[in-house]
Design a protein around this nucleic acid. Structure first.
Length: 541
RNA sequence: GCGCCCGUAGCUCAGCUGGAUAGAGCAACGGACUUCUAAUCCGUAGGUCACACGUUCGAAUCGUGUCGGGCGCGCCA
């Protein structure tokens, strides 16, 4: 509907042979009395044509007024043009939605091959609530892009080559020794969590005290391998409970085994971006606007994470040929973005092909009071626990209810409450209400002879409008990679459904068939919205 | 010190490619259940859009500065 009006205005501009670059907008007015849609075209044109906005607006109205979809068109304020759409035109849209809602809401985009990389937590411990938000966002973005027609691959990157994994091995080995009565402390900067004790117990079952007879280095490697596998399995299991499954798990080690890290450095060297200084290998990221150059290989011969990350992204773009790569990182990594983009450009790839989404932190609250978290002492709330406590639907909805770059307060008590304070139930209840009506209506769902023009109450039309408007929410979510627009759109539909429900009867009413037709369409759209954020559309509550 | 994000109602947040009287949810207060589930609806109240200056016909929105909050700045990971 919006695009239809936009193109009608474009027709007007064309008829006036006006420069196509006019950036007019078609918006939803803030207030209901200003109509269904409004455009600022006249005001924008006024500047260029040096004419009064009101005169241009009148001309525009003259051009458009005979179109059948408009009830009336008015000039308002400084030169806005307000459009009032005929209910029949709105109900026509509902017919198309009912016929094929999936294609109705699909945004027009170029269908590219895109990779979404998210979570990517090192398998050194269980996922905590912060990972949960990144996971929900990454998964939802994937769903949205897939729906929009992109070819999407979800990937989890595992840093299994660095010092942290070594530390995991050391910590596990220390726990193992403790179990055997040896006085040994987990390293100060190691992993203190209790979960390593459990893993050490498994080691006991498997190896007895045999590891003590092996070379220490080998024993640590065995511990590391075991701990990594167990923890990763646990992470995968938690994610699965959270309704997230990855297409690929990519291991950092692979980049070293296949010499891709060295090759990448060689490649950059051939382009002249590499130099040696103080025994280390440097990458001239300042050539791309970074604050300073970065080390790829330390003077002790070890590679930095940046080195493998470059190889990793080279692999994504050049070997696997993704058109767009979306990396979802915690906000504390923002200092890394510039560096990574520099690397991409040095590889000859358009910097815009890499989209880094920085997810802001989650404040965990309980009854309004902050729950303190310390990663160091492993006193964090695990995602698993949160899911058990509040449920997957509430957790996902909560995570996706704010824009990505704003801090999120996650209140465990509130997420658990089945009251109006908790929006997830508000939305789910709307869907359940519709399904309940259908259950009781006991109809065959044959709508062939439904005459939608019988729907003329304000509640029915408003509900229909909210459904049509959902198209814009999907569009925005897709363009801005912001799943919270979906959440917002679903809530807007739910609101109108509840209003309708409170004032209009369906079963036994004069226009039962027509209303069922409308509600069937609404249910389809709510279901679509829920699918895009990974929340279950419950038939009964 | 430099860089990034942020400051809007009591709380949590929308709105930010400049446009109409700044919005929503929650909390508060007052109403509506012999009803297709009241997990809902209706109404009331609530604001110096941190502050200052600038650009503009027009600024919550753009620019500069100040104050306040968060985060990042290593041959760390």
């Amino acid at each position: 509907m919006k695009s239809r009006i936009t193109s009608l205005i474009q027709d007007y501009l064309n008829s006036k042979e006006i420069d196509e670059k006019i950036q007019f907008s078609v918006e939803y007015p803030k207030q209901e009395e200003f109509g269904d849609y409004a455009t600022n075209t006249a005001m924008i044109l006024a500047k260029q044509l040096k004419r009064k906005p009101v005169d241009i607006a009148e001309e525009l109205i003259e051009f458009l007024k005979d179109n059948e979809i408009f009830e009336k068109i008015e000039i308002a304020g400084p030169g806005f043009v307000n459009f009032y759409i005929k209910p029949q035109a709105i109900l026509e849209e509902i017919k198309s939605i009912h016929k094929d809602h999936l294609s109705y809401f699909q945004p027009m985009v170029e269908h590219k091959k895109v990779q979404v990389e998210f979570v990517s937590a090192n398998p050194t411990g269980p996922l905590h609530i912060g990972h949960g938000r990144g996971a929900a966002i990454g998964d939802s973005i994937s769903r949205i892009l897939k729906y929009s027609g992109f070819q999407v691959e979800k990937e989890y990157y595992i840093n299994d080559a660095g010092l942290q994994m070594r530390m995991l091995g050391l910590s596990t080995f220390a726990r193992y020794k403790q179990l055997l009565g040896i006085d040994e402390n987990v390293p100060e900067d190691g992993y203190q969590g209790e979960y390593l004790v459990d893993i050490a117990k498994d080691m006991m079952v498997e190896y007895g005290d045999a590891l003590l007879n092996k070379k220490e280095d080998e024993a640590i490697s065995i511990c590391q391998k075991k701990a990594q596998d167990v923890i990763l399995n646990d992470i995968v299991k938690t994610l699965k409970e959270f309704r997230i499954e990855f297409d690929t798990f990519f291991k950092e080690k692979k980049l070293y085994d296949s010499n891709e890290v060295d090759n990448s450095i060689e490649y950059l060297k051939s382009k002249g971006y590499i130099y040696e200084q103080d025994g280390a290998v440097w990458f001239k990221t300042t050539a791309f606007g970074d604050d300073k150059d970065r080390v790829l290989k330390k003077s002790n011969g070890a590679y930095t994470y940046f080195a493998s990350d470059i190889a990793y992204h080279k692999n994504k773009f050049l070997s696997r040929k993704f058109d767009t790569v979306i990396d979802i990182w915690g906000a504390d990594h923002h200092g890394y973005v510039k560096r990574m983009k520099s690397a991409i450009e040095a590889l000859g790839i358009d910097g815009g092909s890499l989209k880094v989404i920085l997810v802001q932190i989650v404040n965990l609250l309980r009854g309004g009071k902050k729950v303190s978290m310390s990663t160091r002492r492993a006193q964090f709330i695990e995602l698993k626990e949160v899911l058990e406590e509040v449920g997957v639907d509430a957790a996902r909805f909560m995570f996706l209810s704010r824009s990505v770059d704003s801090h999120l307060d996650f209140d465990l008590e509130l997420a658990k409450k089945q009251t109006s304070e908790n929006p997830v139930y508000y939305a789910q209840y709307a869907y359940a209400r519709i399904k309940n009506i259908f259950k009781q209506a006991d109809c065959e769902l044959k709508f062939d002879d439904a005459d939608l023009n019988n729907l003329n109450t304000k509640e029915e039309i408003d509900l229909a409008k909210a459904v049509i408007k959902f198209k814009d929410f999907i569009k925005k979510a897709t363009e801005e990679l912001e799943p919270y627009f979906i959440t917002k759109g679903v809530l807007a539909i739910a609101e109108n459904l509840h209003k309708f429900y409170n004032r209009q009867k369906v079963i036994g009413s004069e226009f039962e068939k027509e209303r069922l037709f409308l509600l069937d369409s609404v249910a389809k759209v709510i279901k679509l919205g829920f699918d895009l954020i990974g929340v279950e559309a419950k038939e009964k509550m």
